[in-house]
């Protein structure tokens, strides 16, 4: 029993230790073999630590084996590259962010086209141009934010505090009302247009009905007759006009009775004198009626 206990406890502890060691190595490296070393150097402040992935053209080929802080402002970094991968000569190493959690990876960028020669174990990979880190991006975002804040303050002053927004609101309200009225007018016009079109259609329909009937013949005949009568009337009017013109010419020349009446002033003078004598006679009759009216009954 005692021996069995020892064996079972021993198995448990062994399994736990193996799981612990292999699990930790796998989580830290991604694989169990260490790979061959390459070295590079970065400036301080790269957020680098052991176990971060090394990418060759975007493919994970190893991990960061060690990071040593130097007093000259640089970090000496050892990269562990898997034995199955080779890094082309001329490749450069940069630190780039991975994901949204602030983790970073070492990116090895080979030249295009990649040369046939590769870095040997222990070689140093030159650092490339670093991409903007999160701090720089945040600084940029801060400056943009400050600009936006200034812009918003100006907008606040110009639009809200100066009353422009109210004016815009009023204008929009007026425009809306105008639009409503226009819509009403358009609707009415549309209705009228529709009615007109319907009337036109019905008139056209009537016309077509009329054209198809016998009435058109009678109407045309009547029209023709009317036209002929009108022609005759116009001819008669022409002749009458001619006669009247002749008569007027005679009258203007002083020929005939009408002419003499129009041109000779003697008649006018005589008539005038006769009227005056009539006036004096009427006045005399009014003044002396017995002189002219003598009534005797018996």
């Amino acid at each position: 029993m005692k021996r069995r206990n020892e064996v079972s406890v021993g198995i448990l502890i062994t399994v736990a230790v193996v799981v612990l060691v292999l699990g930790t190595l796998w989580l830290a490296r991604g694989k169990l073999k260490p790979g061959y070393p390459l070295y590079t150097r970065f400036a301080w402040g790269q957020n680098l630590k052991q176990g971060q992935p090394v990418l060759l053209a975007g493919v994970s080929v190893g991990y960061v084996g060690d990071v040593n802080l130097r007093r000259n402002g640089f970090l000496d970094v050892m990269l562990r590259i898997d034995d199955q991968y080779t890094v082309p000569k001329g490749s450069t190493a940069t630190v780039k962010p991975v994901g949204i959690f602030g983790d970073v990876a070492v990116a090895l960028t080979p030249p295009i086209p990649p040369p046939a020669a590769s870095y040997s174990p222990g070689d140093t990979v030159p650092p490339g141009l670093a991409s903007a880190d999160i701090g720089q991006i945040m600084n940029r975002v801060d400056s943009i934010g400050a600009g936006l804040s200034l812009l918003m303050r100006s907008l606040q002053q110009q639009i809200i505090e100066a009353g422009t927004l109210k004016d815009i609101n009023r204008t929009v309200a007026s425009t809306a009302a105008l639009s409503l009225q226009l819509q009403k007018v358009l609707a009415e016009q549309n209705q009228n247009l529709t009615q007109t079109m319907e009337s036109f259609r019905s008139a056209a329909g009537h016309l077509s009905n009329i054209a198809d009937s016998v009435q058109i013949d009678a109407t045309v005949k009547n029209l023709r007759q009317t036209s002929e009568n009108t022609s005759r009337l116009v001819a008669n009017l022409d002749s009458t006009n001619t006669e009247i013109r002749k008569l007027l010419a005679l009258a203007q020349n002083g020929n005939g009775t009408i002419g003499k009446m129009l041109t000779d002033t003697t008649l006018y003078t005589d008539t005038h004198r006769l009227l005056r004598q009539l006036d004096s006679l009427v006045a005399d009759i009014k003044a002396n009626p017995k002189k002219y009216i003598n009534v005797r009954i018996f």
Binding site: A28, V98, G99
Partner: peptide, 13 residues
């Protein structure tokens, strides 16, 4: 697996 290995440090164990 990418997330599992992200930011892993032996001190966590």
């Amino acid at each position: 697996i990418t997330g599992l290995r992200l930011g892993f440090g032996a001190f966590q164990i």
